[in-house]
Amino acid sequence: MKKASMNIRKLIPQIFMVILSVIFVFPIIWMFILSTNSREDVFRFPPPLLPGDELLNNFNRLLETIPYFSNLWNSVYVSILSTLLILFVCSFAAYGFARFTDAPGYKWFFYIVVGSIMVPPLAGIVPWFMEIKSLGWIDTHWALIIPAAAYPFGVFWMIQYSKQAVPAELYESAKLDGASELRIYWQIVIPLIRPGLGALAILSFLNSWQSFQTPLIVLNSEEKFTVPLGLTNLTTQFGTDVSGVMLGTSISILPIFIAFIFASKHFIEGLTNGSVK
């Protein structure tokens, strides 16, 4: 009798977890299903719950209505360039902070980095926009790549990571061996902080890949749009092509899902490490 009630008590959380996971995954699965059904079937009542055979038609129609491939390509190269730049700028600054702790003004520079982590980007949006305008970066991808590199959180995180991954004596012994600072940075420190860089890369890539507000403010022409902007524009323009939008969304998240499943450990680290530290 006691054993049976124990089993039920153990079973309830299991069932709860299973139901909740289904609810959480359902929208994504339904999105995949809708993208294989025809535009008309999606609007029939009740809506389809099983995969259809309209995938190719939806795909062709998607390519006809918006420059989807250009948008996808824009997202890919903007995210990659932005990530590379962030990795360089942040690890470079972190090297300075982790290596020269006695430098004059160290404290103040460090306070600026930490203090600006919580500052909302919207706080300076109007002058920022005017700057972008006077640089001639409106409707260009530079506006999405260059300013994003001033990422205080990335610097902070890399400082913490470098301090823990690179022993201080290492700098001195490398210095005694006659290595220049740039060489120490590139050949000794970078290999040691690679896991941290990987996590930061995942975080910055996703930030850029999912970004909506900045592209909305800066970009005007459809060919320049990134995926989130292109697809939301599709819904506002042609309010009815649900299966097209769902297909576009599916394509844009599929590579990330696959990467996530194969490297979930790194993803979890990249997405959550920041607040743990």
Partner: peptide, 12 residues
């Protein structure tokens, strides 16, 4: 499983 939603852009 519960981290999946974080991979989809908020706009999408």
């Amino acid at each position: 499983v519960f981290l999946f939603p974080l991979l989809v852009a908020p706009a999408l």
